[in-house]
Design a protein around this nucleic acid. Sequence first.
DNA 1: AGACGTACCTGACCGC
DNA 2: TGCGGTCAGGTACGTC
Length: 271
Amino acid sequence: MPELPEVETVVRGLAGSITGRRITKVELKRKDLRFPFSKDFAQQVTGAQIEQITRRAKYLLFRLDNGRTLLAHLGMSGSFSVSVPRAAKTHDHVIFTLDDKRVLIYNDPRRFGIMDIVKTSELAKHELLYHLGPEPFSEGFNASYLKQALQSRTGAIKPVLMDQKLVVGVGNIYASEALFLAKIDPQKSAPKVAPKAALLVKSIRKVLKDAIESGGSSLRDFVHISGDSGYFQHKFNVYDREGEPCFACKTPIQSIRQAGRATFYCPKCQD
DNA sequence: AGACGTACCTGACCGC
DNA sequence: TGCGGTCAGGTACGTC
């Protein structure tokens, strides 16, 4: 389920629910997710207190009081839930027992997710993090930065927007949505879009912000509830709306494939 | 160096 | 009802 807004929603939910809790036990139900768990994974986490839960790109960062940070990525299908102890469900892979007797469970059918333990002081140079571009809400992600970055690319704008080196957090849904908002054809080459960098920065931020706010209301209790109902209650302008009328001009929304992914856009509004 | 395709994995859905 | 094919919110990696 996760692009930046969904990860942010999960982080906020978890932060409000389990910050300050100590992890008393860790159960790994298998030896790997996308990658094998480090051999001392459970040992590094057990007994530690969760000091703070934050987000970098689409990664969740659980800062522990032992100088380590639990790094987690939800992949395509990962989810965290907090509950009283319960029978394990299919695809529950990691169970953290907390000092208030609740459990934090990581479930992930496709297992594209990632978990790793990192020295907090070395987080920035972690192999999965060091190459990441600016956060979309940071000052570093601005019109002049984006303009220059787009000028040095050759491909179509939509796949470029999903490149986490350019800006983090934008995935397949919000790349299409941001381009609709900016009225830019997703097939247009990145350099040709460079003059509209300011508008694109604004559009990306708006799309993500609206989704966070919508996710915040529709998914408020996400970490307490099984399943992820509510996510699709967020209304998209173009994503997954092939053949349906554009909300602005009634033209049917088109679907094309770019870099192996579905792209949705309005052929009249976007050029 | 950058762009693109492929791989990873399960489950939902569609047409037959 | 079952079967095969296709698709899904991500990202690392190989290849050109």
